[in-house]
Lab assay of single mutants.
Amino acid sequence: MEVRTIKVFTTVDNINLHTQVVDMSMTYGQQFGPTYLDGADVTKIKPHNSHEGKTFYVLPNDDTLRVEAFEYYHTTDPSFLGRYMSALNHTKKWKYPQVNGLTSIKWADNNCYLATALLTLQQIELKFNPPALQDAYYRARAGEAANFCALILAYCNKTVGELGDVRETMSYLFQHANLDSCKRVLNVVCKTCGQQQTTLKGVEAVMYMGTLSYEQFKKGVQIPCTCGKQATKYLVQQESPFVMMSAPPAQYELKHGTFTCASEYTGNYQCGHYKHITSKETLYCIDGALLTKSSEYKGPITDVFYKENSYTTTIK
């Protein structure tokens, strides 16, 4: 009895394709271990004539594949690729409408935090270190965002349907971005203890939790000093293409032309909904596939993004 075979390709990165001759009487799992086709788990399936010449994702289970996976995804987590594939199996079914010149995501599976993050990423200057993220990001900007969303979920250790947080998501993504040249110098002034300067680099240099107003941050924000008295913390120097200011959701007025974009969060910790506000020729609110415009805006804002380049204080 002759062994019926077909020729397929296996890959971990969709760049390096490895030619395989597979036995049609055995499952993919018996031949390769966990195997995925377009995100779908085909591990328990036997090869079919229609699979001839198709590319299958496999887990990096030998040295060659491990090197290829690390170079593309910059992670050695053995569960990463499987999590990416199972997320992709959902995100490829989502709709990605162009809204006001940006790629958004039609609401499904509690994905409003991903839509808000995706919209924000198209408006701030950011370059990702893992080629996987950078490639998928370019495709997302062009309207094909399924891979990018699935990668975000995998890097953030999230599953489809789980509630997510924009600030946490951005923080994970910033860790995989090139923020080497970003720098922030802060000064804390206390009447009792004097003053202390701190220099922050990388992710810490672009994120701040405690106030939404970048102007206020430049002037000074009140913080408790270690001595128990009130101290003032203010920005001395900022070198970065953008800054992200966050605070627990509270009524906040966004003035046209003073910011790049913002995240609105309605609801409580267990259950809520994100919308995205962007400042173009007027203010726009993007909620999944829905767009509304207004000249002014007041609502429960939790993150505001500002364009920056270089700032030095005039406070002496």
Rank of each mutant, 00 (worst) to 15 (best):
101 G>E: 05
135 D>E: 11
316 K>R: 13
18 H>E: 13
248 P>A: 15
38 D>L: 12
144 E>T: 08
311 Y>V: 07
280 K>I: 08
7 K>W: 10
73 Y>N: 02
161 G>K: 05
262 A>N: 02
204 E>I: 02
22 V>K: 07
252 Y>E: 04
151 L>Q: 01
55 T>K: 15
90 H>M: 13
22 V>Q: 05
193 C>N: 02
148 F>Y: 03
142 A>F: 14
8 V>G: 06
62 D>Y: 08
16 N>P: 05
52 E>I: 14
259 F>W: 00
46 K>P: 14
50 S>I: 15
261 C>L: 00
299 G>R: 05
64 T>Q: 15
81 L>D: 02
223 I>D: 12
57 Y>F: 12
302 T>E: 00
111 N>P: 03
198 T>F: 15
155 Y>R: 02
155 Y>A: 01
106 K>E: 06
305 F>V: 06
6 I>D: 04
5 T>Y: 13
180 D>M: 12
308 E>A: 08
138 Y>N: 13
290 L>W: 14
209 M>N: 12
25 S>N: 11
189 V>G: 06
72 Y>P: 06
188 V>Y: 10
204 E>L: 07
267 G>Q: 06
296 E>R: 12
33 G>P: 05
245 M>N: 00
111 N>C: 02
268 N>W: 06
252 Y>P: 00
244 M>R: 05
9 F>Y: 12
306 Y>I: 02
17 L>A: 07
150 A>Y: 03
158 K>F: 04
43 T>C: 14
26 M>S: 11
223 I>P: 01
254 L>N: 01
155 Y>F: 05
146 A>L: 01
4 R>N: 13
287 D>G: 00
174 F>P: 02
10 T>M: 06
172 Y>A: 15
61 N>I: 07
153 L>K: 00
158 K>N: 04
110 N>L: 01
273 H>L: 02
29 G>N: 10
185 V>S: 05
292 T>L: 08
76 T>V: 13
169 T>L: 10
313 T>E: 13
301 I>G: 00
193 C>Q: 02
162 E>D: 15
146 A>P: 06
189 V>E: 14
141 R>T: 12
250 A>E: 09
52 E>T: 14
62 D>R: 11
295 S>Q: 11
105 I>Y: 04
11 T>A: 06
271 C>R: 08
29 G>Y: 12
70 F>D: 09
99 V>S: 06
43 T>K: 10
202 G>E: 05
280 K>H: 08
124 I>G: 04
45 I>C: 15
79 S>P: 06
200 L>C: 10
216 Q>N: 09
56 F>V: 11
114 L>A: 00
84 Y>E: 03
298 K>R: 10
264 E>H: 04
267 G>I: 05
278 T>P: 00
279 S>D: 14
142 A>M: 15
201 K>W: 11
237 Q>P: 01
145 A>C: 12
153 L>Q: 04
137 Y>I: 10
306 Y>S: 00
169 T>D: 02
230 Q>L: 11
294 S>F: 14
290 L>V: 15
302 T>H: 01
258 T>H: 15
48 H>Y: 15
61 N>K: 13
158 K>S: 03
229 K>I: 12
90 H>K: 15
5 T>H: 15
278 T>R: 06
217 F>P: 01
299 G>T: 00
215 E>I: 06
259 F>P: 00
224 P>G: 10
257 G>D: 10
236 V>L: 10
149 C>D: 03
173 L>S: 01
118 L>R: 03
57 Y>R: 06
8 V>K: 05
289 A>P: 06
190 C>E: 01
230 Q>D: 12
107 W>M: 02
261 C>V: 02
113 Y>H: 06
237 Q>I: 11
177 A>R: 02
81 L>S: 05
112 C>N: 01
65 L>W: 07
145 A>E: 03
9 F>Q: 12
145 A>L: 03
8 V>P: 05
243 V>W: 02
173 L>V: 15
140 A>W: 04
31 Q>E: 09
306 Y>D: 00
315 I>E: 14
117 A>F: 03
59 L>P: 07
64 T>R: 13
156 C>V: 08
197 Q>F: 10
121 L>K: 03
202 G>N: 06
77 D>T: 06
142 A>K: 11
10 T>V: 11
71 E>W: 07
15 I>G: 07
307 K>C: 09
299 G>M: 01
316 K>A: 15
203 V>P: 15
107 W>H: 03
119 L>P: 03
249 P>R: 02
18 H>F: 08
209 M>H: 09
149 C>H: 02
106 K>R: 15
123 Q>R: 01
130 P>C: 11
111 N>G: 03
62 D>F: 07
315 I>H: 15
101 G>I: 04
252 Y>Q: 06
39 G>E: 10
41 D>W: 06
294 S>N: 12
128 F>N: 02
301 I>D: 00
21 V>A: 09
39 G>W: 10
91 T>N: 04
56 F>I: 09
28 Y>W: 07
219 K>N: 11
198 T>D: 08
41 D>Q: 15
258 T>V: 07
98 Q>H: 08
212 L>D: 01
90 H>E: 13
27 T>V: 09
6 I>F: 08
40 A>V: 12
281 E>H: 05
60 P>A: 11
202 G>K: 06
13 D>C: 06
225 C>F: 00
44 K>P: 14
265 Y>N: 02
63 D>W: 08
169 T>I: 13
97 P>K: 07
65 L>A: 12
36 Y>R: 05
170 M>R: 01
207 M>Q: 09
196 Q>R: 14
259 F>R: 00
149 C>A: 10
183 K>I: 14
303 D>K: 00
105 I>G: 04
161 G>N: 06
224 P>W: 13
296 E>T: 07
37 L>M: 14
167 R>W: 03
153 L>C: 07
82 G>V: 13
133 L>P: 03
51 H>I: 05
48 H>S: 10
94 W>K: 01
27 T>R: 14
113 Y>V: 04
43 T>N: 10
107 W>V: 03
282 T>Q: 14
250 A>V: 11
141 R>F: 09
70 F>Y: 07
54 K>T: 12
33 G>T: 05
109 D>K: 06
291 L>P: 05
263 S>K: 01
11 T>P: 05
137 Y>F: 15
259 F>Y: 01
252 Y>I: 13
64 T>W: 12
78 P>L: 12
74 H>Y: 06
236 V>N: 04
21 V>L: 13
225 C>Y: 00
131 P>F: 02
157 N>R: 11
103 T>W: 13
264 E>I: 09
87 A>C: 07
230 Q>P: 12
217 F>V: 08
104 S>K: 03
314 T>V: 09
118 L>A: 04
160 V>Y: 04
113 Y>S: 03
227 C>A: 01
297 Y>G: 00
58 V>H: 06
163 L>H: 07
25 S>F: 11
80 F>Q: 02
111 N>W: 04
174 F>D: 02
108 A>D: 08
39 G>V: 09
273 H>I: 01
161 G>E: 04
24 M>R: 12
117 A>Q: 02
168 E>W: 07
38 D>H: 10
271 C>Q: 14
251 Q>Y: 11
238 Q>L: 01
300 P>C: 14
263 S>E: 01
59 L>M: 13
294 S>D: 08
303 D>F: 02
192 T>P: 04
199 T>C: 14
249 P>F: 02
148 F>G: 02
23 D>E: 12
70 F>T: 09
140 A>M: 14
50 S>R: 12
254 L>A: 01
68 E>K: 10
214 Y>R: 01
103 T>N: 04
3 V>W: 15
128 F>H: 04
18 H>D: 08
140 A>S: 08
161 G>F: 03
66 R>H: 13
286 I>D: 02
181 S>M: 15
173 L>G: 01
276 H>R: 00
58 V>W: 06
283 L>N: 02
124 I>A: 02
255 K>Q: 11
98 Q>R: 15
28 Y>A: 05
193 C>H: 02
146 A>V: 05
39 G>I: 08
98 Q>K: 15
286 I>V: 07
263 S>N: 14
168 E>Q: 09
297 Y>V: 05
191 K>C: 10
5 T>K: 08
278 T>H: 07
313 T>A: 10
48 H>E: 15
296 E>Y: 10
193 C>I: 01
173 L>A: 04
47 P>V: 09
33 G>N: 04
34 P>R: 10
275 K>R: 13
157 N>S: 10
95 K>E: 12
306 Y>G: 00
175 Q>D: 06
55 T>A: 14
14 N>K: 11
83 R>A: 10
199 T>F: 08
73 Y>A: 03
96 Y>L: 04
185 V>C: 06
139 R>V: 08
84 Y>I: 03
180 D>Y: 08
76 T>P: 12
69 A>E: 12
105 I>T: 03
95 K>Q: 15
90 H>Y: 15
43 T>E: 15
306 Y>Q: 04
263 S>T: 07
241 P>M: 06
279 S>K: 00
302 T>V: 06
197 Q>G: 07
269 Y>E: 11
287 D>P: 02
260 T>N: 06
240 S>Q: 00
113 Y>T: 01
63 D>T: 08
